[in-house]
Amino acid sequence: MLVTLAVTITIVLIIIVAALLRIDNWSRDFTENSAAVEADFADPVSTIDSRLQQWIADQSRWDIQSKTESDGTIEYEITRTTPVFRFVDDIEIRLVLGDDGTNTRITATSQSRVGKGDLGQNPRNLSELLKALQMPSE
């Protein structure tokens, strides 16, 4: 009984320490549960769209909920589920043809469904997304 309690406490402490080590911005991560980003890519919308779909298909925690296309703009509603507690973040992505007609402007938001703070998960979601889109699909 005592060994089981000690193991349980150790596991809980490891999870807490791991979560605290992931915090990047202590003043933000306990009080914000959303993040937004904008970025420009030199590739056309169709290329970024294909890259996005392929990357999400390869991710176990990301799922496309809907995709809407109109007038050269593509909008996605995506969810990402955290591994341990299964929290769901809602991610909205908008791909728009850039000013020069060949590049792509991306705007994305990530919002936690629960909680006052996200411990930095929403900025990490967007960072992971942008990093994936910079990589050419294979």
Rank of each mutant, 00 (worst) to 15 (best):
M1L: 00
V3H: 00
V3K: 00
A6C: 00
I9C: 06
I9W: 00
I9Y: 00
T10I: 03
T10S: 13
T10P: 04
L13M: 10
L13E: 02
I14Q: 01
I15R: 04
I15W: 05
I15V: 13
V17Q: 02
A18G: 00
A18M: 09
L21R: 01
D24S: 03
W26R: 10
F30V: 03
T31E: 07
A36D: 11
A39S: 08
A39Q: 13
A39W: 02
I48P: 05
D49F: 09
Q54L: 12
A57I: 09
R61D: 10
W62G: 02
W62P: 01
D63T: 10
K67L: 08
K67R: 14
E69N: 08
D71M: 09
I74V: 15
Y76N: 02
Y76G: 02
R80M: 06
R80I: 08
P83C: 11
I91G: 00
E92A: 12
L95P: 04
V96I: 15
G98P: 03
D99I: 04
D99V: 00
N103W: 13
A108F: 13
T109S: 03
Q111F: 07
S112E: 02
S112C: 02
R113S: 07
V114E: 09
G115N: 07
K116G: 11
K116N: 14
D118W: 06
G120Y: 09
N122A: 08
R124Y: 15
L129S: 00
A132V: 00
L133K: 02
L133Y: 07
M135T: 15
